[in-house]
Design a protein around this nucleic acid. Structure first.
Lengths: 239, 239
DNA sequence: GAGTGGTCTAGACCACGCA
DNA sequence: GCGTGGTCTAGACCACTCT
C-alpha cells in the first residue's frame, strides 16, 4: 500500500494501487479482480474504502462491476470500443458502424511534432498506418495513425487489422486506452482526400486530431482523421 | 420522500427530490443547501444516504461543496460557464475567450424542426438571436440562437447581453443549463459567413449544432455556430 | 469552539448469478 | 445456498472555515 507524503486519502491510495496492478498487467483485460472483501483484508482497509476506490475506477471505465458475479478489468469489444471513441453518427444521433477499406502500413522515424506529442525521442521509430473507412457502401473517413514502435513491436505484421484497433492494442500489447484528446477543424478536400473519399476537390472536410492516452497516462497513439461530413456528423455530449 | 413503484434506491430518491427542489427554485443559484445532517433528519434517512445523493449531484456540477462551509447550488460566472460549454481553443489546448460583436434579435413562430427539437408546438413563439463573436481582434464565430419565448419572457429587452448567455438564463429566468448535445460538420463559407466572418467565399467552416438541456431535463436552447477554424480548433476530451 | 463537509470503519440486509 | 456486488445505517474522527 505504500505511504506517500503529499497526503492522499486512503481510498485514493487504494485506487492508485489497483490502477497500477492493472497497468502493470497483474490483472489483465477481462479478468476478475479479487472480491471487495478479499481486497479489503489483503490491503488492511475496510470494505467501504475499497468500494470507494472501485466505484471511482468503474466511473472511469477502467473496470466493470457485475452484481452477483464480481469486478472485471474492462474488456474492449468491437462494439464498446467503437461506440466509446468513434464519435461519427447520423444527424439526429443514430449510431453508425464503419467498415475498413484499403490500408497501408510502414515504419519510419518520428518527426519532431510526433516525438513531442508521443513523448519519445525524435528519430525513434514509429509505425504509420493509413486506412480508409467506409460507411454504408461509401468511403467516409481517411485515417492516418502513428504509433511508437517500442510500445507496439511488430504491429505491422498483424493482418487483417480489427475494425476497432483498441481491442488489438489491449489483447496483443496490454495497452488499455482510457482517454482521448481531440481537436477538430474544418478544411477543404485536397487531392488525396478527393481520391480516397471519392469527392470533388474543394469539398468540406472535417479533420480530427487525436492523442490517445493509456491507463498509465502515457500518450500512445496519434490519429488524424479526415471525414466527409455530408452524411455524417461528429456527435458530443457536454455535461 | 414519496414512494415510487419502479424501485429506485433511497439515495436515488433523495437525489431526485433535491434536484426537484433546485429546478423548481426552492433553492436558487449560489444559495446554500441545508447541511447534510439537517437534510438527513428532515428526510428521515441517514447522513450517508444524503451524502451519496449530494456526491452524485456534485459530480454533475449541479452543486458545489466547500469543506467547512456548506453545499451551494452551482452559480455560473462568465469564466466557468464559458469554459464549460465553449469548446473553441488554440491548437495545443490553450483556452480562448471570445468577445461579442454586432447582434440582432427578433421574435417569430418556431418552424417545424425547431418545435420538434425544443418540444414545443409549431408556431409557438421563439426568440431568434444572431451575433458575431470575436477572438483576438478578428471575427471568428457566427451564432444563431433560438429560445422558446415562453421560457424566456421578454429576453429580447435585455441589453447588453452577457458574453456567456447561460449566466443570464440562470440569473433572470432560473434556468440552469447542465448539459449540451452537439453535432459538428464541415461546410463551406456562404455569402453570409463570408461577410460576417470576413472570409473568402468557399473557405472551410466548422458548423456546430447544439441543443442545451436544463436541470429539469428540458431542451431549452438551440444554437448553431459557424466557426472559422483557421486559427481555432474545437477541443474535446473523451474518457 | 462550533459547525460544516471529508474520510473511514463495521455491520446488517438486499439483489443477483450460479451451481 | 453461497458468494458476489449494492444499499443503508450509525458513529468516530479529521480538515477546514468562520466567529
Amino acid at each position: 500500500m505504500d505511504g506517500a507524503p503529499g497526503f492522499r486519502p486512503l481510498y485514493r491510495q487504494v485506487y492508485d494501487h489497483l490502477v497500477k496492478q492493472i497497468s502493470t498487467g497483474v490483472w489483465k483485460a477481462a479478468e476478475a479482480l479479487p472480491s471487495e472483501h478479499a481486497l479489503a483484508s489483503s490491503l488492511g482497509v475496510s470494505q467501504g474504502t475499497v468500494r470507494k476506490a472501485l466505484d471511482a475506477m468503474a466511473s472511469e471505465n477502467l473496470i466493470e462491476r457485475r452484481q452477483g458475479k464480481g469486478t472485471y478489468v474492462s474488456q474492449y469489444n468491437e462494439q464498446s470500443a467503437l461506440f466509446r471513441f468513434f464519435r461519427m453518427a447520423h444527424p439526429g444521433g443514430e449510431k453508425v458502424i464503419p467498415d475498413c477499406g484499403e490500408k497501408s502500413i510502414s515504419r519510419r522515424p518520428a518527426n519532431a511534432t510526433e516525438a513531442r506529442k508521443l513523448a519519445i525521442k525524435p528519430d525513434d521509430m514509429v509505425v504509420e498506418l493509413r486506412r480508409t473507412r467506409w460507411v454504408e457502401g461509401r468511403p467516409a473517413i481517411f485515417e492516418m495513425i502513428v504509433l511508437p514502435l517500442a510500445l507496439f513491436p511488430d504491429i505491422d505484421r498483424y493482418d487483417p487489422l480489427p475494425n476497432a484497433l483498441y481491442t488489438l492494442y489491449q489483447a496483443e500489447f496490454d495497452i488499455n486506452i482510457v482517454q482521448a484528446e481531440e481537436e477538430l477543424h474544418a478544411d477543404i478536400a485536397r487531392k488525396e482526400d478527393a481520391s480516397r473519399l471519392d469527392l470533388p476537390l474543394g469539398s468540406p472536410i472535417l479533420q480530427i486530431d487525436r492523442i490517445a492516452i493509456d491507463i498509465a497516462g502515457r500518450p500512445v497513439e496519434l490519429r488524424t482523421s479526415r471525414c466527409d461530413t455530408a452524411r455524417l456528423v461528429y456527435a458530443v455530449s457536454i455535461r
